[in-house]
Structure formats: structure tokens, C-alpha cells
Amino acid sequence: MSTPILEFRRVSRSFGEGRAAVPVLRNVDLSVNELEFLCLVGESGCGKTTTGKILSGLLPPTGGRVLFEGQDVSTLKGEAYGRYRRAVQIVHQDPYASLNPTQSIFDILRYPLLRHGFAKNHKQAHTRASELLELVGLTPTADVIGKYPHQLSGGQRQRVSIARALTTQPKVIVADEAVSMVDVSIRISILKTLMKMRETLGLTIVFITHDLALAKYFAWEGRIAVMYLGRVVEVGATRDVTGRPQHPYTKTLLSAIPEPDPDRTRRKEQLSLRSEDVPSLTELPAGCTFHPRCPFFEPGRCDREEPELEAVPRAESDARVACLPLTEDGTLRPYGG
């Protein structure tokens, strides 16, 4: 396989110092392959947003290495570093907070275009900005380009955010909960635009979301990485992770999601957690951090050693999983059963 476009090697990140340090990511290994659609899925506090920020260079890791096209980004200098930062762009969750309210849409697009030399003058910038707006489906562009963010709807603003991310002709777009704040029907059309751009522009997309159904739909050809308390617990092809989930956490998540189908959702089998309390990041349980809640907890095994991502023997799934009973025995036994 070719070199991943972005790669995490044992990446850790904590906030704060000394005793008060909060480990948000711990020794994460993750690769983003060129042109793939990778979903990072997990609940709040799992570290998915921090992962997105580190991937796009907005935040340095406190441990481990981040590789861009095989090179450690902390060793990149000058133009090489600039190339990395331009190549990886992020689209934030909140289209109300991420656009400067005092700038017109044209200003928002013009500054990065001129600054990074993608347009040489005002006229070129205008042409390029119109092209970008058309690309993200904000047509007629002449109506939009002179407006200010508050004159646009949430969905339109999010399209502007995407257009802004595209100004530097990136290779990777990190979309952090990019559609969670807009209405259902608009959500789909924005994501479809993103998918279309992926094909036409040759983009790699890292899609961060808490919505597994959405992840499944859009990353059907891609991969999903499920995160829990600062670690990846299961990563694999979307059809494996959503269709044949292996890790107890993934199984629990999938079983907990209501479905927009009355019969199906009523009949759905539920996996019950042993505890509804999410451990605090500053007082993580020993061993596998999911063990106090896991329906398949094996005392004396799961609470000793922190599991690493490995393949599951004899499984129908190609996913790699961080779960000792699974990776060592290939099977799970219900707790106390």
C-alpha cells in the first residue's frame, strides 16, 4: 500500500500541566489514505475533535509523531510546512462562530486566495471566489458574494466555510461535525456536495461525527474509526464496522441508536451497559478504559493491560480492534454469564 497522506504514530495530547493534566488522546495510531473517506466516530470527550485539530496542524501533539506524506510535520520548515498547512484544511462545526461577521463572503474567500498566491489581484480573486461558490452549490454566485454571514442561512454559511477551506487547493478536508448544526434535509445536500467535490477535486475527507448512521451512509466505501476516551477502539471498512461490529463499545453504540423505522426500532435488541457513568479523563480506569461499563468484561484480564489495535482471529470482519478477549481468543463472553 502507498504511503498514507496523513499518519498518527503513537500520538498523545494532554491539556494542562502536571497533576492537572487531562490526557485527551493517548498513543493513537491512525492513518488517512489518499482519496479515502475516513469517519471518526465517538461520543463527546472521546478526542475526535482534538484528533481533527492535530491532523490539520491547528494543535501540536504532546507525544508521538504526525506524518504528512511520510514526513514528520514537526521537522517541516518554511515552504514545506506551508505546503502541509495548505494541503490540510478544516471545516468547523459552528458556521455561526467560524465566519467573521464583519467580512463579506468575498472578503472571507479573498484573503486566503491573495495571501497564498492563488490569485494575483482583485479581479482574479473575484473570478476564483465565484468558481468556489459555484462548486459548493451557492448559486447564483453574484447574489451571495457581496453578502455578509448574517444574511445567510446556517446551511449556506456552512457551504461558505467549505468554499473557504477550498481556497488553498487542499488535498485533505477535515470536516468536524460539519453538518450537525443544520436541519436534516439540508444536511444531506451539503454532504452530497462534499462527496461530489471529493471525486472532482480528488480530495481526501476526514469526517468527524457522533452520528453513526450518517457515517455509515457517507463513508460506505470508506473506513470508520470508533474512538472512546482518547483511543481508537475499532477501525475498519465501514461495512464491517457498521454491519459486523466487533468491539463491545461499537456493538453497544449500534444497538443504542434508535432507527427511523417504528417496527425495527421496537424490535431492536439492546445491549445494556454495566454503568451509565462515563469515567473522567483525569481518573481513567486501569487496563481497557471501557471495562467498568463493558457488557463483556472479564475480571483480571480487561482491567490489567491496556489493549492495542489488532485483528480479530477467525472474524468475518477485517477491522482491527482494541479488546483483549477478542484479539486473543476471537470471542466475547457476557459478563457474569
Partner: peptide
């Protein structure tokens, strides 16, 4: 059941078609 299985209004139908499902792989239309 009426609303989810036998919708009669185009808007209800539109909503149902735009929701991603865990089970099933139908196309989503906004």
C-alpha cells in the same frame, strides 16, 4: 405506523427520504 410506512404528504415523504438509516442502504434525497 401511518406516518412512517404510509405517508401521504410529500413533505413527510421528503423527511423520511432524507434520514440516514443504520439498517438499509437506500439513497438519501434532500
Amino acid at each position: 405506523d401511518d406516518i412512517f410506512y404510509e405517508p401521504l404528504h410529500p413533505y413527510t415523504l421528503g423527511l423520511l427520504r432524507s434520514v440516514p438509516r443504520l439498517s438499509g442502504s437506500q439513497d438519501l434525497i434532500s
